[in-house]
């Protein structure tokens, strides 16, 4: 029985069947099913990943079973390297899946968040054995640079950040082809947006309250973007001042950037009474108006101002200890193929 299983596991037929099965899944995943659905129904399923692991098990049994004891030539050396890299890649992936950390951290310019607290991240995903003790220090977004250039090449945007503990903070620049590395954690550029500083004044112009509010970018029918408070899906209002302060009304703010003046433009405010906004958020606002950045507008007994525009950025934070194994194995594998190829060419010449 065990012999039979071993024989099946180590047959070259099985290798070919598996290769063809994976091939067929890939074709399915980009034709009939696509994108998100392909990911859900094929590439991210247990059975598909099982198939991949099965293939590697098969390589291990079949290939190394056959090659064992054979004379070491250029051809067989290359093949060993190649199929070994295959096994190592899987090893790297499995190891990584146990220890990785992936998070999205969102910061407004000037803001600092502790790395070790889950609330600092919009999204967190991690391997079973990832230790939170690894997340030390804090992350600060110093500034977002627009139109950033490196040796004349336009990188469009770059984030200037500092990561680490206390005075030993490491400062660096991140743009699309350049990450920041800190203690094994990579910081990658992901997305960016506007935050506005909304300030509330009383009738006499005395400052009562202020807060940075991140805006959503919503694509409009005419392909232009609307930058407003709300959710990913629609504009919306929020209690202002924000709890724990005592809210006075519900506010929606939409920022309209000036194409010529960086961080300039104007803001449209719409205000609902708190009761009304709860009852029917679509009702007519009791006040609305527009003011340039830095200017005040009267709303009932108060004044409102979008005093300043800052950028917020979202960064992918990744710790993937298995990745170097995978990436190095790719080259070993390619090298193995080249060695086998050279071996065959030389043999053919004779």
């Amino acid at each position: 029985m065990i012999r039979k299983i071993y024989k099946f596991l180590s047959s070259t037929k099985l290798a070919l069947i598996l290769l063809i099965a994976i091939f067929a899944c890939c074709v399915m995943g980009v034709t009939i099913l696509r994108g998100e659905r392909a990911w859900r129904l094929i590439f991210n399923t247990l059975w598909f990943n099982g198939l991949l692991i099965f293939l590697v098990a098969n390589v291990a049994f079949c290939f190394f079973g056959r090659i064992w004891g054979r004379k070491l030539t250029l051809i067989s050396l290359g093949m060993i390297l190649f199929h070994l890299s295959f096994v190592a890649i899987l090893g790297g992936i499995v190891y990584n899946s146990l220890f990785y950390f992936r998070g999205v951290i969102r910061l407004t310019e000037g803001e600092t968040l502790p790395n070790g607290e889950l609330q600092s991240y919009d999204i967190v995903d991690r391997g079973r054995f990832f230790s939170f003790a690894k997340l030390k220090g804090e992350t600060t977004l110093i500034k977002m640079h627009k139109g950033y250039k490196v040796n004349g090449a336009d990188k469009q945007v770059a984030y200037e950040v500092a990561v680490g503990e206390g005075r030993s903070k490491q400062q660096g620049i991140i743009y699309i082809t350049h990450k920041l590395d800190h203690n094994g954690f990579g910081y990658f550029r992901d997305k960016e947006g506007y935050s506005i500083l909304i300030v509330l004044y009383d009738k006499l112009g005395r400052e009562l309250y202020g807060a940075y509010v991140s805006l959503q970018s919503l694509k409009q029918k005419d392909n232009l973007y609307l930058y407003t408070t709300g959710t990913k899906y629609a504009p919306g209002n929020f209690p202002f001042p924000q709890p724990p302060s005592e809210p006075l009304f519900a506010l929606q703010a939409a920022y309209n950037p000036d194409p010529k003046k960086e961080r300039g433009g104007d803001t449209i405010f719409k205000v609902w009474s708190l009761v009304e906004s709860e009852a029917e958020s679509k009702g007519k606002p009791f006040a609305e108006g527009k003011a340039a950045i830095g200017e005040k507008i009267r709303i009932g007994d108060y004044y409102l101002s979008a005093r300043e525009v800052r950028y917020w950025v979202g960064m992918n934070v990744r710790y993937e200890p298995g990745k170097p194994i995978v990436l190095a194995s790719l080259w070993v594998g390619l090298g193995g193929m080249v060695i086998t190829f050279i071996g065959r060419m030389r043999k053919g010449k004779k």
Partner: peptide
């Protein structure tokens, strides 16, 4: 990996190139 921090994402272009590679692997 340089741009996004992951080397393989099963996105269509990646899968299509894997398909063409597997054809010759087979």
């Amino acid at each position: 990996n340089q741009v996004k921090g992951n080397y393989w994402n099963w996105d269509p272009v990646e899968v299509w190139s894997l398909i063409s590679w597997l054809i010759y692997g087979i």
